[in-house]
Design a protein around this nucleic acid. Structure first.
Length: 769
DNA sequence: TCTAGCCGAGTTTTT
DNA sequence: CTCGGCTAGA
């Protein structure tokens, strides 16, 4: 047990306690993953069989990393038998082997959220309801909420509170949509993400013998990120652990940020009430961040009332204060951040992969992206469209899914007329209506159009029959064909990507690349399975694997050394030497949709998560105006900045070039922060784009001393003396134009608002005269 | 069946 | 602004 020496005292205690239930409260950066991995290694060394350990995580990435670390410690041959994966992955595996007990088949499809949205849309349409009232997004979240709380359609009907709430929200028929939605899923032999948890509960509730079987199998259960479990997950874990209470959950209530998805922070707060003899271990030493960052984060989270008290501390160096950057516009924000990044790269020798830009909403990525691109800083955006959500990929996968499960209605709808084969919307609607009328799947109708009286003309019937037999031919090959060969012939024969061969546009070429990429992935999957001793890997096995994958799981080698751009949510569990948290403004962070104290506390935790991602440097920026939804909106600094003790912050300082007074306007009154305009933030390190691209880091440091002297330069577009209009300051008169580091700049007298030095590329001035 | 054009809406999302 | 969804017309 040499490896135990690598743990501190509390970590060791948490690892070694295996007598009963235990809760490990793990502060940010306190070695949570380390405790989990070492604990599993410890259990294995104590003689526990790997096949009786169940370890649940929230992301595939976390599971994969943990598995790799354990493999290093105890050997891959042992590690591969661990039940380790996400809740969804593990229980979809169990559901597949027990599917017939709950009315599904082994090859059930998994509907992703786009599929379920599309199904909801068609149900609302078929019920002739107003889709402006029954908005698909809202209906979807309502159904998801019900499932996460284990409310089946029948118990929904019996729940007066829910019914009342729906009537009050003018959506009384939600109960019916929910019921039909579930029926349709079952008819399609499909489960959505929430079903994977709900149906597991149904399985365990209705079949005690099966529950008992898994209670026997899982001799020890570990759960990561327990603060983010919802009721469905909580109950699965509770039932499985009931017998022996050999369970260890790890989490941090201060990092609970998924309540809007049904996560219930009470699961961790009330752990002791669920498991009466639970031991609690607190990990409070942060090994990730400087003292300043840890203390700043502590002072922030201290403002939350609801929390398990703990004292996270760091013994690393004090470190630099968190730098607060104040800018005028979101464009300038991007520019300033890019400059700061350049600075870090070349004067502190940070690599791109050490740096992350975090934001509250995905839409903020655009300006950042633009700024980075302009300065040729390599970056990678996480979130947005993932590989598996791309149209061409979804199309190919829809073929694969339909071929493996002909009842899969969403896949059928997607490709029955793609590529176009003369089966229009009218026909598809008739087909589905007919199927509903006879309570069978659409495929069933296709199989016997006469029997079900499908009212289409002979030509259409012929086209439908052709489509059916094409799918049939593939379907017959499923049990005997290797997944890669079958996928390959699907792509070649169905013409699913024939659209992309019409021209050589970059979009089309990229689509072809993506499909090749997918096929390559299938190939690799088959080879990996073969190495594990499988004789043949069939297509359904591959589908089962990828339906639960996300973009984050597909890291490419070429993406290694790049700046990371992602939402704060996506950054949870990650760490970077330097972190930029941008858009720290009211109406953005906290989100205007969070009103109640409980919701605000979650937003504060989100900010806490953001800060604690940083190891050495943390920057926070806010802009006084932001371009959103086609309009420029004014904004104030986020209240959360004030929640951090000032001693840990480096607030923007006023800088007065040439002794000119530059008044701030009204924004900063509450913060006593003054603007350090373009000088400090933007130009302390003049940016020479070309040189940055070509030269080595050391070269660049030399150029940094270049003069910042301003030389008045006549600017023809903005003649001295002319009047201009600015989005924030209103009308002003140009006093002087100049160039600084190759950027056009103007000094403008805005009367009452004072004299401002503005960069023309940001100011967006309108010339009036 | 396809496409241009209009209208309206617009947080966060591990699976 | 920038998507998605729908309608009108080819």
């Amino acid at each position: 047990m040499e490896f135990l020496k690598e743990l501190n005292e509390n970590q060791q205690k948490a690892v070694k306690y295996t007598d009963g239930a235990s809760l490990v409260i793990a502060g940010a950066g306190s070695g949570k993953t380390r405790v989990l991995t070492y604990k599993i290694a410890y259990l294995l060394k104590m003689g526990m069989a790997p096949g009786s350990i169940l370890a649940l995580t929230f992301t595939n990435k976390a599971a994969k990393e943990m598995k790799e670390r354990i493999a290093q410690m105890v050997g891959a041959n042992i590690a591969r038998y661990l039940w380790m994966g996400t809740f969804h992955a593990i229980f979809s595996r169990i559901l597949r082997s027990e599917a017939e007990h709950i009315g599904f088949t082994k090859s059930f499809s998994i509907y992703d959220s786009a599929d379920s949205k599309s199904l909801i849309k068609s149900i609302v349409k078929e019920m002739k309801l107003d889709d402006k009232v029954y908005k698909h997004g809202f209906v979807q979240s309502r159904i998801s909420y019900a499932k996460n709380n284990l409310i089946t359609p029948d118990s929904y009907l019996a729940n007066t509170d829910l019914l009342k709430a729906d009537t009050a929200s003018r959506i009384p028929l939600l109960k019916d949509i929910y019921k039909i939605y579930c029926n349709r899923c079952k008819q399609a032999d499909a489960m959505d993400f929430d079903d994977l948890l709900l149906q597991t509960n149904v399985l365990f509730r209705n079949h005690p013998a099966i529950l008992q079987k898994y209670q026997q199998i899982f001799g020890y259960i570990l759960v990561d990120e327990y603060q983010d479990t919802n009721f469905a997950q909580y109950l699965i874990v509770k039932k499985l652990a009931e017998k022996h209470e050999k369970i260890c959950v790890v989490g941090d209530d201060a990092q609970s940020i998924y309540s809007f998805r049904g996560a219930n922070i009470d699961n961790i707060l009330q752990f002791k009430n669920t498991y009466h003899n639970a031991q609690i271990f607190k990990l409070e030493q942060n090994y990730r961040s400087t003292q300043t960052i840890v203390n700043a984060a502590n002072s922030l989270i201290d403002k939350n009332l609801q929390q398990i008290k703990k004292t996270v501390f760091s013994e690393k160096e004090t470190g630099k204060p968190i730098k607060v950057l104040s800018v005028f516009t979101d464009f300038e924000e991007g520019f300033v951040i890019a400059n700061n990044i350049t600075d870090l790269r070349y004067s502190s020798n940070y690599r791109c992969q050490d740096i992350a830009i975090l934001y509250r909403t995905n839409s903020q990525s655009r300006v950042m992206e633009e700024a980075l691109r302009k300065q040729s800083i390599p970056y990678r955006i996480y979130g947005g469209l993932s590989f598996y959500q791309r149209k061409e990929i979804k199309d190919v996968i829809a073929y694969c899914r339909l071929i493996c499960n002909q009842n899969d209605e969403e896949s059928l709808k997607r490709i029955i007329n793609y590529p176009a084969r003369g089966i229009g919307d009218t026909t598809v609607n008739k087909l589905i209506e007919c199927a509903q009328l006879h309570a069978v799947s659409a495929w069933e109708v296709l199989n016997d159009m006469l029997k079900y009286n499908l009212a289409v003309n002979a030509g259409t019937a012929n086209k439908l029959a052709q489509f059916r037999s094409m799918i049939d031919v593939f379907a017959q090959q499923v049990p005997t064909q290797n997944a890669y060969d079958l996928a390959n012939s699907i792509v070649k024969t169905t013409g699913v990507i024939s659209d992309t061969f019409t021209d050589h546009s970059p979009e089309n070429l990229s689509k072809q690349d993506n499909v090749q990429e997918l096929l390559k992935a299938v190939h690799e999957f088959c080879e990996a399975k073969q190495k594990e001793g499988e004789t043949i890997t069939i297509l359904p096995d591959y589908l089962a694997e990828i339906s639960l994958l996300t973009d984050q799981d597909t890291d490419k080698e070429t993406d290694k050394d790049k700046i990371t751009l992602m939402t704060v949510h996506a950054a949870k569990g990650l760490e970077f030497k330097a972190v930029f948290i941008v858009g720290m403004e009211e109406e953005l962070f906290p989100s205007p949709f969070c009103i109640t104290e409980r919701e605000l506390e979650e937003e504060r935790r989100l900010f806490y998560v953001a800060i604690t991602r940083a190891e050495e440097r943390c920057f926070i920026s806010y802009s006084k105006s932001r371009f959103r939804n086609g309009k420029t909106n004014f904004s104030n600094p986020s209240r959360f900045i004030e929640d951090i003790d000032k001693e840990f912050l480096e607030l923007p300082v006023e800088n007065k070039p040439n002794g000119k007074q530059s008044s701030i306007g009204d924004w900063d009154d509450d913060m006593e922060v003054e603007r350090n305009r373009f000088n400090n933030a933007s130009f302390s390190k003049p940016v020479f784009k070309e040189q940055i691209i070509q030269s080595s880091p050391r070269h660049l440091v030399k150029v940094q001393g270049v003069s910042e002297e301003r030389n008045p330069i006549e600017n023809k577009a903005y003649p001295v003396g002319s009047f201009v209009k600015h989005a924030i300051f209103g009308i002003g008169k140009i006093i002087e134009t100049s160039q600084v580091s190759g950027n056009d700049k103007a000094d403008i007298d805005f009367g009452e608002k004072g004299i401002k030095s503005l960069l023309l590329k940001f100011a967006k001035l309108e010339v009036l005269t």
